[in-house]
Design a protein around this nucleic acid. Structure first.
Length: 590
RNA sequence: GCCGGCAUAGCUCAGUGGUAGAGCAGCUGUUUUGUAAACAGCAGGUCAUUGGUUCGAAUCCGAUUGCCGGCUCCA
């Protein structure tokens, strides 16, 4: 299947039909399961099953074993071989209700309750399912499939509902395409930042220290520091002022902001002397206090405070994931205090900076979401309807001016305002929120953040919270997967390995190493008794961009022999020539 | 937090009720080397923790912790 729009559509039909075949097989093998839903997803399909009745005496629901999956696959093959037709039928709601009542499909009945017209069912041999369709004509069209994993999933995604068993799978019109898909999944594992992080010795998360708390190694810290230095430089260029704030603040401050009630689960409170303090889950309050240290004139605005601020949030144990979701992380935070007439320029500036970051780090795939309110939802949101409408209008204006493809997502906004979220993808296609630009109608009110206007009267400021990377941990996690550990030279913890062929060449190798160091190049000398092949292998596995081979010939000619990552031996050069080439590449973030 | 799986040496992994294993890494020695792994020896483990079953547990059962895949959550 290609990438054309029709074919993508076809893929969904193909996968959805395979989900039906799977449901049929499961129902035949486990007649007491109740069906949930079985849609096609980004890459494949799933179907949810309630297994409570499979073992009616047990207090816990039956769960599918790997052996069950094999049995289900076997049964699916038989159904496919029979080449049953998928038959579509439109029926009345009342008929549908009595049909699914008879079948004891409680979940289908629940879905039916919310449907009014155009109710269709699909049958295939003796299997009937409530389904909008469309489907492929017959089961025989499925040529290759595999069931991949089984997982728990709440009915309708609500944790108050029963947990169903979800089986994931994928199918293709040929074995070759299926094999390619499976191979891609295998290859994606090689990009996993947790694996690469260990191999390249970039970071650790110690059980002894606590889950979700990252300890950067010397190599990881180099990467982090370089990114942070770059970040600071770019912010100063753009009129931001750097500030820095402590890790804790009095609980009362978080009560004033409203965070205390709302964010309680994720916030850690501690006794500090005789008073209660909160371990900061965000940096904004310190920025606001700094703003409020004096009366501000309209002439001073916009004020842009930026900080690489480390925050702590209690994330539930099941959601932690390497560097991508942690409990302590450094936000590349900034707060912009501005007037309404400055909003468009400020938002545009932030969006441009975020795009510049993405471009500099050479991210190709990302997604832009415009997160707005739940339609019709009234309570629980700060700000007036008018505020929200105007804010959305402004955000749209900015996005369209930048000609960005974006998706409007209702209900994704936070309670205090709408936002633009930029999502980065990991190796297996999971989206992680990186940069975010959020408008805040809440804090300016609660803290009475104002400026004195031309009219000599106080006006409420417009507050923008924003990150252009997201958080250092997550951003570097995405970077590792994006580069597969082969960082561009400006970010590489070790930029050059100097490898001697025999130990009597150490003098010249030292001379080369010192010269590189004097040009601020990060260099590692491999001067041990090992053979050159061993040293090359070591340096290659560490993904060092350049390896300089030092042998007798090089020493006599005062040359270095160069191996470039991904290219191999590129020949002998004068050291100065190499340094020029290298410093240019570093400068250009090539 | 929920569902399922997993946890053996620094790393990658073997070991299904009867004395804890390999490769790599480490240390010591030999080798002095020309573009992705030289050779030998040595050392290294309360089998995550904990309770139970058993004459006997890495192995079977329970609890806890952590990790993995989902779900939910995520200012």
């Amino acid at each position: 299947m290609g990438k054309g729009k029709n074919e993508v559509f076809g893929k969904k039909i193909y996968w959805h039909s395979t989900a039906h075949i799977m449901a049929q097989a499961v129902k035949e093998l486990f007649p007491d399961v109740k069906l949930g839903i079985g849609p096609a997803i980004e890459s494949g399909f799933y179907y949810d099953f309630d297994c409570q009745e499979v073992t009616p005496d047990s207090t816990t629901a039956y769960t599918f074993t790997p052996e069950d999956l094999e049995k289900i696959e076997k049964r699916m093959r038989e159904i496919i071989k029979k080449d049953y037709k998928f038959v579509r039928k439109e029926i009345k709601k009342s008929e549908a209700i009595s049909l699914f009542k008879k079948l004891k499909e409680d979940y289908k009945l629940e879905l039916l309750n919310e449907l009014n017209k155009g109710i269709t069912i699909y049958s295939c041999d003796n299997f009937i399912d409530l389904c909008e369709g469309p489907h492929i004509p017959s089961t025989g069209r499925i040529k290759a499939f595999k069931l991949l994993k089984v997982a728990g999933a709440y009915w309708r995604g609500n944790e108050k509902n029963p947990m169903l068993q979800r089986i994931y799978g994928v199918s293709y019109p040929s074995q070759r395409e299926l094999d390619e898909h499976l191979k891609k999944l295998e290859e994606a594992k090689e990009r996993d930042h947790r694996k690469i992080g260990k191999e390249l010795d970039l970071f650790n998360i110690f059980e002894e220290a606590g889950p979700g708390l990252v300890c950067w190694t010397p190599k990881g810290t180099i990467i982090k520091e370089i990114i942070e230095a770059f970040w600071k430089e770019e912010h100063l260029k753009r009129g931001y002022q750097l500030i820095s704030s402590p890790h804790i603040a009095k609980t009362d401050l978080w009560k004033t902001s409203g965070h205390y009630e709302y964010h309680y689960e994720g916030m850690a409170e501690l006794k500090f002397g005789n008073e209660n303090y909160v371990l900061k889950p965000m940096n904004c309050l310190f920025h606001i206090l700094t703003y409020k240290t004096r009366i501000r004139s309209y002439k001073e605005l916009p004020i842009r405070y930026a900080e690489l601020g480390t925050v702590y949030r209690y994330e539930r144990s099941g959601v932690l994931h390497g560097l991508m979701r942690v409990r302590g992380f450094t936000q590349d935070d900034a707060h912009i205090f501005c007037r309404e007439d400055q909003m468009v320029d400020e938002l545009t500036g932030v969006l441009e900076l975020a795009q510049y970051m993405i471009k500099t780090f050479k991210f190709t795939g990302y997604q832009v979401d415009l997160s707005v309110r739940e339609p019709g939802a009234r309570g629980g949101y700060a700000g007036s309807d008018e505020d929200w409408e105007k804010a959305e209008e402004t955000l749209v204006q900015v996005l369209e001016a930048k000609k960005l493809d974006y998706k409007r997502v209702e209900g994704e906004a936070v309670f205090y305002g709408p936002k633009i979220d930029i999502k980065l993808f990991d190796a297996i296609g999971r989206a992680w929120q990186g940069p975010t630009i959020q408008l805040d109608f809440n804090l300016p009110q609660r803290f009475n953040i104002t400026y004195i206007g031309k009219d000599n009267k106080p006006h409420q400021v417009f507050l923008i919270h924003r990150t252009v990377l997201g958080a250092m941990e997550r951003f570097i996690g995405c970077l590792i997967e994006h580069y597969k550990g082969a960082f561009p030279i400006w970010l590489s913890p070790v930029q050059v390995a100097v490898a001697t062929i025999s130990q009597d060449l150490e003098d010249y190798a030292n001379e080369v190493t010192e010269k590189l160091k004097s040009h601020d190049i990060r260099v590692q000398l491999l001067s041990g008794a090992e053979k050159i092949g061993f040293k090359i292998r070591e340096a290659s596995l560490m993904k060092i961009p350049y390896i300089l081979i030092i042998g007798k010939r090089e020493k006599i000619a005062k040359n270095v022999s160069i191996r470039e990552r991904g290219k191999g031996d590129i020949g002998s050069f004068k050291l100065d020539t190499f340094i020029n080439l290298l410093t240019k590449r570093i400068r250009n973030k090539d």
